[in-house]
Amino acid sequence: MHISEGVLRPEILIGGAVLSTALVFYAFKTLKNEEIPKTAVLSALFFLASFIHIPLGPTSVHLVLGGIVGALLGPRAFVAIFVALFLQGILFGYGGLTTLGVNVFNLAFPTLAGYFLFRLHPHTLWKKTALWFCIGFVPLGLSAFLLSLTLALNGEAFVSAAQLAFLAHLPVMFIEGVITLFALRFIEKVAPAWLEVV
């Protein structure tokens, strides 16, 4: 999900950095002191999601949980994901510092979809199921698309890598959707107050 250091052209790195800086800066400026705790715990959750492996046939994939983080945080997710990716880059070498801008944009921007989907009011159980699946599926799908787009923009030669990267993410999107759906159902059953939209 993260693009590694050293892969991208300077133009793309700088473009991503400028875009993310603007968005993170805005989200950060408007972040109130009393919102810091929620932003921090969900940033931690996003950070740790990479270490939760879900079995898939002979291998396993890790979660991203961008949809849930976006649903609960809204635009604050930019700050949360920035902090999480920064720490992942430094402590584990996932992504890195120079690609931080690109990765923050690719992962944080799509979580807004989770935020908007979460705000819809489905009237039937079937619609709700579909919607909650999409809260996981759509942001990750968009992220995978943005990741492939970034690679493709990096040069003609990267197009095949971009295509393969997108295909590799398809099963992950479904898993993220299923896990998100069941996780939200679990929260609804155990502690519905947390899902109330304010």
């Binding site: 079995p55 609960l72 069941f182 996780a183 502690a191 947390w194």
Partner: peptide
């Protein structure tokens, strides 16, 4: 955990628990 619905539900239940505990921590904080 395997690639089946029970495993996925178990793991998702755990994710749900993590989210709830995280939000509770934020209130405590």
């Amino acid at each position: 955990p395997k690639t089946d619905l029970l495993s996925y539900k178990t793991l998702a239940g755990f994710i749900g628990t993590l989210v709830i505990k995280a939000l509770e921590r934020s209130v405590a904080l």
